[in-house]
Computed example of a mutant assay.
Amino acid sequence: MPQAALEGLNQYQDEVDGAADYAARVATAKSAFSNRNRRTNAIFRDVRAALAKMAGDAVRCAYCEDSAADEVEHVKPKDLYPQSVFRWPNYVYACGPCNGRKRNKFSVIDAGGTMVDITRARGAPVVAPVEGLPALIDPRSEDPMQFFDMDLQGTFVVLEALDLNPVDEARATFTIELLGLNRDLLLTTRRDAYLGYRARLSEYSARAEQGAEEAELDAIRSSLLRSPHPTVWEEMKRQAHLIEELRMLFAAVPAAIEWRHFPNAFAY
Rank of each mutant, 00 (worst) to 15 (best):
Q146C: 11
D57F: 11
G123A: 06
S84T: 11
T114D: 11
R183K: 15
E7A: 15
L179H: 06
A62D: 01
Q153P: 04
K78F: 12
N41F: 05
G96H: 10
P89H: 06
E258C: 03
P2V: 12
G96Y: 13
E71Q: 15
A20P: 08
N37W: 06
C95K: 01
G211A: 07
A240D: 04
P97C: 01
F44G: 00
M150S: 04
I176M: 08
L152W: 02
Q146A: 14
C61G: 08
K76C: 04
D218Q: 12
E203I: 05
N104A: 13
D21R: 09
L136P: 02
P134I: 05
E258N: 03
A219E: 10
S84H: 13
W233D: 13
N104T: 15
D149P: 01
D218R: 14
A5P: 02
V130D: 12
A124H: 00
T175P: 05
G8D: 10
F148D: 00
R171D: 01
A199W: 14
W259Y: 08
I137S: 00
T119Y: 02
A256D: 07
L246M: 11
A135F: 03
K102Y: 02
L217P: 10
R221C: 07
F44D: 03
D21A: 13
G180A: 05
D46S: 02
A135N: 03
L249P: 06
R171M: 03
R190L: 05
L51M: 05
C64D: 09
L178K: 02
A121R: 04
E160A: 15
R45G: 04
C64V: 13
L186N: 02
E209L: 13
S34W: 04
V116H: 00
Q3R: 08
R87V: 10
Q210C: 11
G56M: 04
I176K: 08
Y194C: 06
L225N: 10
R183S: 12
D46P: 01
V130H: 10
A5K: 03
A212R: 05
E214N: 11
P125E: 03
P97M: 02
K76N: 06
P77L: 05
L80R: 00
K237H: 08
D17G: 10
D149T: 06
E234L: 07
D110P: 00
L246Y: 14
L162A: 15
S227T: 09
P263H: 07
E65Y: 07
N90G: 03
W233S: 07
S227Y: 07
E177C: 09
E65R: 07
Y12K: 08
E244R: 14
A62Q: 00
T28K: 12
D46F: 01
R238W: 03
P2T: 09
S222E: 15
V16A: 00
G18K: 12
C64F: 08
V85K: 01
A55W: 02
